[in-house]
Structure formats: structure tokens, C-alpha cells
Design a protein around this nucleic acid. Structure first.
Lengths: 116, 116
DNA sequence: TCGATAGTTCGACAAACGACGTACAGTTCG
DNA sequence: CGAACTGTACGTCGTTTGTCGAACTATCGA
């Protein structure tokens, strides 16, 4: 069975650019979002693996929460796992073009640290 | 006379998405960039006034530096003032569409705090 | 029921960040 | 020269952020 996790996701009308940018302005989170967008919806563990993140699971959970609260991704409970999805429709509606930029940027231009 | 301030600006090939996003993920800096883009090049004091920022001048200088080091804006010395400009060509070349998104976003969707 | 799997929550800690005031430096003008 | 103007650099303070490990919750399967 599939259950939506509400109250944790902001409505589309609640998205704010500053918060979305802040959520994306981290190497780990950017990798999560880009990988998720390319691979389609994934459970947390699978995404963490696919994104090549070497962080602990509690840290991953934290980043996932930041992205969720910014409205960038969505989580839905299916069995014992959370299936994550990019909220592309809402992002495109609010900030048209933003997601495409983030997705299309070549790996070389991403940057590995907040300061480099 | 006009003198370019070099060594302080990253080359176009040095721009990194994470750093650009981090630079833009602040209400004050976002206001600076958006105002600067609309008003064209401006000296610091004039920009701070036009952007309606109530922060101290040293804080403004700090934000200006963050934007400069991320490659978002450029400074050139003219007389006793620094003329600031958005590096739109370089941004468009590296992350096509990004700047347009940031510029076109309606004020309502910007957000006033990093966390709201 | 027991154990494995999948994530969350909590508390701690170091590092980074934003804001401030003061002092400083370069330019222009009297 | 000296004062006014424009912005930078430095040190500090309090808050936020990223990371971790350990404890906890919930679901599924044997």
C-alpha cells in the first residue's frame, strides 16, 4: 500500500526561491537531486548508493529533509521504504527553467565543496 | 580612469554551480543581484540604497565579496567608487537559463529568510 | 514472535555564516 | 595638507549547518 506523507511537504504556493536555492547549494543535496531526476523515483538507500554519497544514513536523512521542506522533493511511504521523487511540476510552475539548469549542468561545473 | 580589479574574480571557466547557488541563496544577496540586473551597473552605495537593504556597509561589502568570489558580479574601480556589474555573459555561458530564472521570479516567491 | 530492513530523531560537536563596529586605505576636492 | 567620501579588512559574537553515532519506530518475512 502507498501512503502520502503530508504536512511535511510545503504546498506548491509555498515554495520560496531563497529556500530552494539554499537546498540546492550543497554538493550532497545537488547530487541527490540530479541523480533522482535522472533515475526516476527511488527509495532513500538506493538513491544514496546511486548518487555515490559516502555519508552516514542519518546525514542522508537530514539532507533529504532539507530538500523536502524546501519543496524540491517529495516522499511517499511504500511498505518499509520512502520513495523519493523530484517535484518537477511544482518547481517548473514556480521557477520555470531552474530545474533544467540544475539538471543540465555538466558534472565539471558542479563543484565539490561549498567553498572551492 | 577605470581600472579592473583582477585576482578577485574567478575566470569564467572557474565558475561552479554549488558556489553560485550558495551565493544566491541569501535574501540580501539575491536582492543585490536582482536590483543590479535591473538597474544596470551601480556603485555599492547606490546599489545598497536601490536594493532597500538596511544592513551596515561592512556587511554589504561582505555580501558583495561573496557574490564576486562566486563569479556572479564584477567590480571595477572608477575614481573613489567600485562599479558593480552582473557577469551575465559568463553565467549564461556556464549555466544557461539560471540567471533568467533568478531575475524573472516574482517578488512574492523570493522569500525573506533562509528559513521560513 | 524474532530478526532483518529502512529511515527518523536526538544530542553533540566543529566549522561556516551573517551581522556588527572600528580601524584602515585610496581618491577627490578645498 | 586635511577633510569628506567610498569601500575594505579585521576581530567578535551568536546562530545555523553538516556530520556523526546511538537509540528508536515501523514494516515485512521466516
Amino acid at each position: 500500500m502507498t501512503v502520502m506523507v503530508d504536512g511535511l511537504h510545503p504546498a506548491a504556493s509555498e515554495l520560496r526561491l531563497v529556500k530552494v536555492l539554499a537546498a540546492l547549494a550543497d554538493p550532497a543535496r545537488l547530487a541527490m537531486v540530479r541523480t533522482l531526476a535522472r533515475n526516476g523515483e527511488s527509495p532513500c538507500t538506493q538513491l544514496q548508493d546511486a548518487a555515490g554519497l559516502t555519508i552516514g544514513k542519518s546525514t542522508f536523512s537530514h539532507h533529504q529533509k532539507v530538500l523536502r521542506e524546501a519543496g524540491v522533493i517529495q516522499a511517499r511511504i511504500q511498505g518499509q521504504q520512502r520513495i523519493l521523487t523530484v517535484r518537477r511540476d511544482d518547481l517548473d510552475a514556480c521557477f520555470p527553467g531552474l530545474f533544467e539548469v540544475v539538471l543540465d549542468a555538466p558534472e565539471k561545473l558542479i563543484g565539490t565543496k561549498r567553498s572551492d
